[in-house]
Structures are given as structure tokens and as C-alpha cells.
Design a protein around this nucleic acid. Structure first.
Length: 108
DNA sequence: CGAATGACTCACT
DNA sequence: GAGTGAGCCATTC
């Protein structure tokens, strides 16, 4: 697979996410130049899990626009929440974080 | 190449 | 404000 150009872009942005901060799929997609490709961002992260080489990817810091841990389904139940809490992320609900308080803009 | 799928988002009800 | 439907782009079959 050498056409992972889109994926690599996503990985690169996700890696830039500072510890204790989170971002949204739409924000990442926008920084890639394709604001409407929010679904592709999640798709790329899903592919990253398949590639154990990318285990450095803090995909647990990526949530949907609502702050819900939609990705925990593929990441692993409980794992995503644990990692985020370990970084000081405050959870509003079991699967929802305070996105407004921890949001990080990848375009910066 | 056409059709289906998905870790999303927006608009409408 | 919550629930439902359609749109969106790239990858896979």
C-alpha cells in the first residue's frame, strides 16, 4: 500500500496533538485541505490500528465534533477513556469529554 | 468501473 | 434540545 498519502497526512496531524489536548475529525480534515473528509480521518485512524507500526499514534486524542469517543469501538472499550484521563482530560460522561475545554486546533 | 461502507457533519423536524 | 435523514470523500469488493 503506497497510496497512504492521505493517511500519512492524518497521522502527521494526529502526532502533533499535544498531551492533554484533543481535536476533532473535521478539524483534522480541514487542516488537510479537505474539510468534508471527516469520515476519511476516522477511516485512516482505523487503518493505523491495523498497522502496529503506528502504535505511537495518539488516536485516542481524536474525537468527533460532539466530544464523544466514537472511536473507542475500534480502539478498545475503556482503553481510550483510560488514556485520556491519564493525560488530564476531563470527562463529562463515560464516553464524552469536555471538548470545548480541551480542544486543540491542528491548523495552529 | 460501479456499488457499498465508514472512528463524521450539517440541516431539518 | 434531541432524533432522523442526506451529503460528503477515499478505500475496498
Amino acid at each position: 500500500m503506497e497510496k497512504e498519502d492521505f493517511y500519512q497526512r492524518v497521522f502527521e496531524v494526529v502526532r502533533m496533538i499535544p498531551r492533554g489536548k484533543v481535536t476533532t475529525y473535521g478539524a483534522i480534515a480541514k487542516s488537510l485541505g479537505v474539510a468534508s473528509a471527516a469520515r476519511m480521518v476516522g477511516y485512516a485512524l482505523n487503518a493505523s490500528i491495523s498497522s502496529k507500526e503506528l502504535n505511537d499514534l495518539p488516536c485516542h486524542r481524536v474525537v468527533n465534533r460532539n466530544g464523544e469517543l466514537t472511536g473507542k469501538i475500534h480502539f478498545g472499550p475503556g482503553t481510550m477513556k483510560y488514556l485520556l484521563e491519564n493525560e488530564g482530560i476531563h470527562f463529562k460522561n463515560q464516553d464524552t469529554i469536555d471538548i470545548k475545554n480541551h480542544f486543540w486546533n491542528p491548523e495552529l
